[in-house]
Amino acid sequence: MTQKIILAVEGLKTYFFTRAGVVKAVDGVSFSVKEGESLGIAGESGCGKSITCLSIVRLVPQPAGRIISGKILFEGQDLLVKKEKEMRQWRGKRISMILQDPLTSLNPCYTIENQVSEPYKIEGLNNGSNNIRKKVINVLKRVRIPSPERRMRDYPFQFSGGMRQRVLAAIAIARDPRLLIADEPTTSLDVTIQDQFLRLLKDMQQQTNMGLVMITHDLGIVAETCDRVAIMYAGKIVERGTVENVFLNPAHPYTEALMEALPKMGSKRKRLFQIEGEPPNLLRLPGGCSFWPRCHKAMDICQTQSPPVISLKNGGEASCWLLC
């Protein structure tokens, strides 16, 4: 079965021009998402995951941030050459996003019904408020909010964190997007609610066959929900491949170190492995491979030249001099 590629990002570069210098938040990132597939983008905080997402919907914080080069092909069309007005019609309708913090993402002034009906109103659905109400109830049912007829009259502060995240999911899927970007959707939820919510996401994806980009720093979430994964470090993707391959046979030393740092069940309790040093300052990246100061397999060439992207035997890709 060949699935259609929905989103293909090629050589995306998003830089921030600040007083202190140019911050290369996203520096030549490429990946693709197929229909019904979920891609995890994982990495430390500040490695450019969120900015990658915001670049896709063209909402990079202005005026400092700018997309320098690259292509974002969504269903074959380059989003970067689109006009803002055209782009706005695609947001929400074709590409949706679930934001990080459900506690602040809802407008405190309006009822849930009011906010969930917004996507429909934007669409210009004007055949009666009853019709919209039915749709709202429907979509709230899809995200499994119990007794939506009653709950939708409540205000956000009357909802718990998990419930609010579901409301956000409802807003995101209201217009049946082809691609859903979830930017750390579960960071502010506790584990049991996390699990429920991830299952909900998976189910929704299977129902509608949409593509899912899951941004997270939690490798457990990646393992649980994603088909493929891209590991980011300092604005670059250092390794990508299927979840199985990347987790079981990491090719890049950074991925390897990340896996090493995960606590394992059953093994004797000892101090967890730790990646020495700190993530680099994006203003002053080390020359060559960004990871070499922390890499215990670093060679001389790593310090001077950035590594090429190598295709692995198992179908993945990684960029490291060790693999040459």
């Binding site: 919907v57 909402l59 706005r88 019609q89 695609w90 947001r91 929400g92 309708k93 949706s96 996003m97 934001l99 990080q100 913090d101 602040t104 993402s105 809802l106 407008n107 405190p108 917004e118 996507p119 934007i122 956000l168 807003i171 995101a172």
Partner: peptide, 12 residues
Amino acid sequence: REFVVLAKVTGC
């Protein structure tokens, strides 16, 4: 605030 970002993402 995040709800404004959400509004943008929704296409307002």
